[in-house]
């Protein structure tokens, strides 16, 4: 049966992946302003092969979070990421809904 990507499953996957020996980072929405697609507390778990589960923005900025997770896994130091409104002309990653979010990315170890 398909696993529904509830927060429960995301955190359970983070634990399971780490115990399997994979290198893992956990991203969490810690602040939102305006219209934000996922509420504060939402998680995305990422491994060092760029597999991920969950969501922090409904798909808008996951790519950038996965890239940052790679750096966090390599360095061990957490990062705070901030995303604002998408700027299509500048090809900047962002949120088309017009909100702002702050995402905390940390290594699981």
């Amino acid at each position: 049966m398909d696993q529904a990507a509830t927060e429960q499953d995301v955190l359970a996957a983070a634990e399971r992946w780490r115990k399997e020996g994979r290198k893992v980072a956990l991203a969490t929405v810690v602040e939102t302003w305006g219209s934000a697609p996922r509420p504060v507390g939402s998680h995305l778990v990422i491994d060092d092969k760029d597999n991920f589960l969950g969501s922090v923005s409904g798909g808008c900025v996951e790519g950038a979070v996965v890239a940052a997770a790679g750096e966090v896994i390599a360095s061990g130091a957490p990062k705070m990421l901030e995303f604002g409104v998408a700027d299509e002309t500048a090809w900047k990653v962002g949120l088309s809904c017009g909100g702002n979010i702050r995402v905390y990315v940390e290594k699981v170890d």
């Binding site: 955190l11 359970a12 983070a14 634990e15 780490r18 115990k19 956990l26 940390e106 699981v108 170890d109």
Partner: peptide, 11 residues
């Protein structure tokens, strides 16, 4: 997050 803390959280 430390793995032991994550394991307690999930439990």
């Amino acid at each position: 997050m430390r793995l032991d803390l994550l394991a307690v959280l999930n439990a």
